[in-house]
Design a protein around this nucleic acid. Structure first.
Length: 432
DNA sequence: GTAGCCTTGAAC
DNA sequence: GTTCAAGGCTAC
């Protein structure tokens, strides 16, 4: 069984911190495929490091990398190093030139998906972390992909039935094409692959390529003679197109609230929590509308959700954390494009507990990462660290979302929340 | 600072 | 007991 898992908790927290800092969201969990093969592990070592192309030594901080990039990433994060690129933040990173520009090397580490949170703050040695299941799934998916590569198209491998799939927007199956395709071409048939086990078409732009498509990657990342432009931010206009107009959203939420307050009698007034829940409810409607309309999400099917949630009394802390986050984002001069990218990164979160079939989500995350990196490099060259700084805010955004969720769940269990609204419905859905 | 090898220890 | 992804050590 396999599920896709959007994470509106953090979405809500991120989207509404300006005017309603206690929104909830939902999470889903489900079983994941558990297949381990000897071949897949051996095959892992035949791959090349997605950062420099050197020989892979194993999974490190979220993906298969070489020993030196592992060490570089560890040193950088552990020692909180800040690098500055002396060129245009687009230095080629390969085995022979990887030590030339640590700034671009670190950006590449982040953009291909190395996880900051996998570097232990307490420097504890040994043991395993929460990425273990991800590594297992990745190994398994690689194995599946190899099976697909050597099998006729469309035939399932190992008899595993997929319950979740990327679906072409037009409902027509993707047509394999041996020639390179444009982003628009890919859009016209959805993302061009119908399950997380299938790779995108060969020859597509790197933004739409699978993270392990080394042939294409090396072409645009490592060539020093003909260097293509920075990873195209062409995804951004598409993402911005789906964006709700914030002023209109505010007006809608406030208008609804005013009408509700006006319709209530003297003895039927809403208390503060009631007002906040109404705001949360309307914002959730808007968020659901955004999620439904957003690029990528339209191509997903979603299954049921369950979660075990624990209650906590945290409104003060929640508000203070949210305000602090907003303040940090303002200090970073977060603009609308970056805000939208963060929203996508929060929504398409492969770390969601119990998420299976997450490779498609990881691919989306990687594409958005690239778009964000490209955008910040082009639009804010005076702030070369901005991409990394923005990514560092994601754990806090997600954490605030979870805290909001826990708080609301507690109040929900105590019967403090108004009935018959979307918020309550979502909280009901979270009961184990 | 880099990168290859070693040690550690939780998950299986 | 084995695995393997963390952090540590150290020659360069």
């Amino acid at each position: 069984m396999s599920l896709f898992s959007p994470d509106p908790s953090a979405q809500a927290a991120l989207s509404s911190v300006d005017y309603a800092q206690d929104l909830l969201g939902s999470d889903v969990s489900g079983a994941s495929l558990q297949v381990k093969t000897e071949d897949s592990w051996e095959d892992s070592f035949r791959e090349t490091c997605p950062i420099c192309g050197d020989k892979v030594s194993g999974y490190h901080y979220g993906l298969l990398t070489c020993e030196s990039c592992k060490g570089f990433f560890k040193r950088t994060v552990q020692n909180d190093k800040r690098y500055t690129c002396l060129e245009k933040q687009s230095c080629p990173i390969d085995k022979t030139q990887r030590t030339r520009c640590p700034s671009c090397r670190f950006h590449k580490c982040l953009s291909v998906g190395m996880r900051l949170e996998a570097v232990r703050a307490d420097r504890t040695r040994g043991g395993r972390n929460k990425l273990g299941p991800l590594y297992r799934r990745d190994r398994q998916l690689k194995q599946q992909r190899r099976g697909l590569d050597s099998s006729p198209a469309g035939i399932s491998v190992y008899g595993i039935k997929l319950e979740y799939s990327f679906q072409p927007q037009g409902g027509t199956p993707p047509t394999p094409s041996p020639s390179p395709c444009s982003y628009e071409d890919s859009q016209s048939t959805g993302l061009g692959f119908s399950s997380p086990l299938e790779s995108p078409l060969p020859g597509c732009l790197p933004e739409l390529c699978d993270p392990y498509c080394q042939e294409v990657k090396s072409e645009w990342l490592c060539s020093s003679q003909v260097r293509p432009p920075l990873p195209s931010p062409s995804l951004l206009p598409e993402m911005m197109h789906c964006e709700l107009e914030e002023a209109a959203l505010r007006a809608r939420v406030l208008g609804h609230l005013q009408r509700e307050l006006a319709s209530r009698g003297k003895h039927d007034r809403l208390n503060t929590l009631g007002i906040m829940c109404r705001v949360a409810d309307q914002t959730l409607f808007a968020l659901v509308e955004w999620v439904r309309g957003c690029v990528f999400f339209k191509q997903l099917t979603i299954e049921v959700s369950t979660i075990v949630s624990q209650a906590g009394d945290a409104l003060t802390s929640l508000l203070s954390r949210s305000q602090e986050l907003v303040s940090k984002l303002r200090t970073l001069q977060l603009d609308r494009q970056e805000f939208v990218c963060l929203k996508y990164l929060v929504l398409f979160n492969p770390d969601v507990k119990g998420l299976a079939g997450c490779s498609a989500v990881e691919r989306v995350q990687e594409q958005v990462n690239r778009s964000l990196m490209s955008y910040t490099a082009q639009e804010h060259p005076q702030h070369p660290d901005k991409f990394g700084q923005l990514l560092l805010k994601l754990p806090e955004i997600r954490s605030i979302g979870l805290q909001a969720e826990e708080y609301l769940y507690t109040r929900h269990l105590q019967g403090d929340l108004p009935c018959n609204n979307l918020l309550t419905e979502m909280l009901h859905a979270k009961q184990p």
